[in-house]
């Protein structure tokens, strides 16, 4: 067990270190997110009575779209450098590789969200930063990273892999977006998190269930 955790940490640290040196994923996701916010701002401005009403939707759409951009890179860069084979040849449990990669993706998306949140506050003139909302965003991001990482591995060996990832990912993660948006609406309207217990449970069940399926099926995805 201790060895298993060490492998996870090693894979995670490898990805984080690569990212710290290249900053490919972060810059791509952050700039894309800023552009998405800008476009959504123009899409809704003057069409709704109050721009703040669309903030939950704007926030989650931006997060979902920016995430796909970063998730795609997780395995594509490994594949293009030829380091994926080395990673899979290592005499370790492959699910540990999955967890390492998933946690790295989780951190990347969370860091980008730390950039998106203040930007949304600024552009849409709404107070967003609160502990319950950060918890909701964390749980939603876990869902995105859990499903996104395994689908990233799934699409890396296909033609048109960049096109395929969002098509595979979005219909599956819809419950994450629905419950995330619903809870964000509730929290912005001043409801306490306890009143949104149903949605919180749904999100937690989603995260756990999909983590279990990914754990069970990841071996088949990277098997050569």
């Amino acid at each position: 067990m201790k060895r298993y955790l060490r492998v996870i940490a090693a894979v995670w640290w490898k990805d984080v270190r690569v990212e710290l040196r290249s900053k490919d994923i972060f810059t791509g996701m952050a700039v894309f997110a800023a552009l998405a916010l800008l476009i959504l701002n123009f899409a809704f401005e003057l069409r709704v009575p109050d721009k703040r009403m669309v903030v939950p939707g704007v926030l989650w759409v931006t997060v979902a779209f920016a995430s796909v951009l970063g998730l795609g890179r997780a395995f594509i860069s490994e594949k293009d450098r030829g380091s994926l084979a080395g990673l899979l040849l290592a005499p370790v449990d492959r699910s540990a590789v999955y967890f390492g990669k998933m946690l790295a993706n989780l951190v990347f998306i969370l860091v980008v969200e730390l950039f998106i949140l203040p930007l949304t506050v600024l552009f849409f003139n709404v107070s967003l930063i609160s502990l319950p909302l950060l918890l909701v965003i964390l749980l939603g991001t876990i869902g995105l990273a859990v499903v996104g990482t395994i689908f990233s591995a799934l699409t890396v060996n296909t033609r048109a892999r960049e096109v395929l990832l969002p098509i595979l990912l979005f219909p599956i993660i819809l419950p994450v977006l629905v419950s995330g948006i619903r809870m964000t609406i509730g929290l912005l309207e001043g409801d306490p998190l306890s009143k949104l217990g149903n949605w919180l449970q749904l999100l937690i069940i989603f995260d756990i269930l999909y983590l279990a399926i990914a754990f069970l099926t990841f071996d088949y995805v990277v098997e050569e």
Partner: peptide, 15 residues
């Protein structure tokens, strides 16, 4: 790959 995806797909429907 199709098998893995169809498992994810079918489980997601009730949720």
């Amino acid at each position: 790959f199709a098998s893995v995806y169809s498992i994810f797909a079918f489980v997601s429907v009730p949720i």
